[in-house]
Amino acid sequence: MLRDVTIGQYFPGGTPIHRLDPRTKLVWTVIFITALFMARGALSYALMLCVLAGCVFASRVSARALMGSIKPMLIIICITAILNVFFTRGEVIARLWVISVTREGLISAAYMASRLVMLISGTFLLTYTTSPIALTDGIESLLGPLKKIRLPVHELAMMMSIALRFIPTLIEETDKIMSAQKARGADFETGGLIKRAKALLPILIPLFISAFRRADELAVAMESRCYHGGEGRTRMKKLRMTSRDCAALALGAALPALIVVTNMLSGA
């Protein structure tokens, strides 16, 4: 069951999206999210959907993988949508005791849900098409200027890439511990919320202990491979902006402008 977790997963490939510089993709994702929150009205949403669909198509990420990324967020999306339905004032179309459903509520729920779905798909598309290493390299490079104000940018990037590296390892370990506890009669599936939360304790404790042990061993292994912080460190794959990246960034810059236009068109 835990193997379904797709956070931080990367699907290797050679599509134009895969080959973009990670910094381009990071900036693009930020622009995309900004545009998503700027969007008002059906036309703007349609435009965003087209952009997203185009990127998904170009990256050849399977629809199933994208659905997999939305699945864990489904509850949040539903709750947000339901709250929108019930708590938006406007023209009442149905009434049940004190709760009333409004037309505006339904519309805003639909917008909110599709906004969240696009938000999640867009950010996951970034991790699906960018190797974690390229991603952290990109973040390190983009945040590079912050080193001047003594922000430990390299350390943060290193921590992130190690965290991503150990996600599958720790998931595997959790599975193993769960099986071991089940074999001794532990019950994770029945009972109320509190009982289930308590049942997780015998999983979390061994998991934490082993994570600390791993951290200790990894630190020794890194040191014995001459790791001594970011100073004087070089990279095998240097980040390089190509003309393709420039074109992508120009398109990215045009997106918010387009959204402003479509907003005005549909708002009219």
Partner: peptide, 20 residues
């Protein structure tokens, strides 16, 4: 517990990268 990176060749590159 001694593999740092999530791609094989990036991991092998870790030490020479540290050496500059």
């Amino acid at each position: 517990n001694q593999i740092v990176a999530s791609v094989v060749e990036e991991d092998v590159a870790f030490a020479p990268e540290n050496l500059g």
